[in-house]
């Protein structure tokens, strides 16, 4: 057979592509359960990192079961819905441009650590080159930040990529998302350094301004939704607290 003929060349190419295509498709299918498991473990580790629990892939499920007491789903109006919050892929929803705002679902994880209750909020936003995401844990006043963990896909190493480092995440602890008039203000990542006494601002990363701004927007857009839910159920409790303070003052 003439090796240089067109027919031979085409036949060779077609057979080659078919064999390789089938081989890769089968491998990908066979490994699917493991890849999914890895992805779930990583997600549990990320959720736990917001309340400063360092889980490994081996004990992710166990630690998750220990600390995460319950989870719920809310919509963009702040009302609660039925379903499994863990299954919601916020990054996928963020990318899906056909999804209407009221169709987006927001998972909320309730954690119990050392007798205290925390609320872990997953969030996703845009950095300079690609998506950025994070998990922020609020204390049970629905206001004070207990822990924050951010990560990114393709931010610039040494600049925007530093958002997943401790020096960036640590200052969030103790900051407040609601001002003392009860208005939602979120947390601002400020260029040029934030005033340390400002409860609503942290230092940005020099040279990583767009990523820092991305974190600001992500925090604001996401926490705004959750705040609607918190304020809807928080009112009763706040009233109780205020009453307690008034009573104390009387004593």
């Amino acid at each position: 057979m003439n090796k240089e003929s067109n027919i031979y060349t085409f036949t060779f190419a077609i057979i080659m592509v078919l064999v390789i295509g089938i081989l890769l498709a089968v491998t990908s299918e066979l490994l699917q359960p493991r890849k999914k498991q890895n992805k779930n473990d990583k997600k549990m580790m990320d959720i736990l990192s917001a309340i400063n629990i360092d889980a490994s892939r081996e004990n992710a499920q166990e630690q998750y079961d220990t600390y995460i007491s319950s989870s719920s789903i809310i919509d963009n109006k702040g009302s609660i819905l039925q379903g499994d919050a863990f299954k919601i892929d916020v990054l996928f929803q963020y990318r899906d441009k056909t999804l209407l705002p009221e169709e987006r679902r927001y998972p909320l994880f309730k954690a119990n650590k050392d007798g205290e209750e925390y609320f872990i909020v997953p969030m996703v936003g845009s950095g300079l080159w690609g998506p950025i995401w994070g998990f922020v844990a609020l204390e049970n006043d629905y206001n004070t930040i207990y822990g924050a963990a951010f990560d990114h896909k393709t931010e610039t190493p040494g600049l925007g990529a530093e958002i997943n480092q401790d020096f960036f995440e640590q200052p969030f602890v103790g900051k407040k998302i609601i001002d003392n008039k009860g208005m939602f203000v979120s947390i601002d990542v400020q260029k040029g350094g934030a005033d340390r006494s400002d409860p609503h601002a942290v230092d940005g990363i020099t040279g990583g301004t767009i990523t820092s701004d991305g974190v600001t927007d992500m925090l604001k857009n996401t926490l705004m939704i959750y705040n609607k839910y918190f304020s809807s159920l928080g009112k009763a409790e706040i009233k109780k607290d205020t009453l307690a303070i008034i009573n104390n003052n009387i004593d």
Partner: peptide
């Protein structure tokens, strides 16, 4: 050939060394 082998390695790493 090289590309498909690399895709194979990538899949295996994702599954076993995430």
């Amino acid at each position: 050939v090289v590309a498909s082998l690399v895709a194979l390695v990538d899949q295996i790493l994702k599954a076993f060394l995430p």
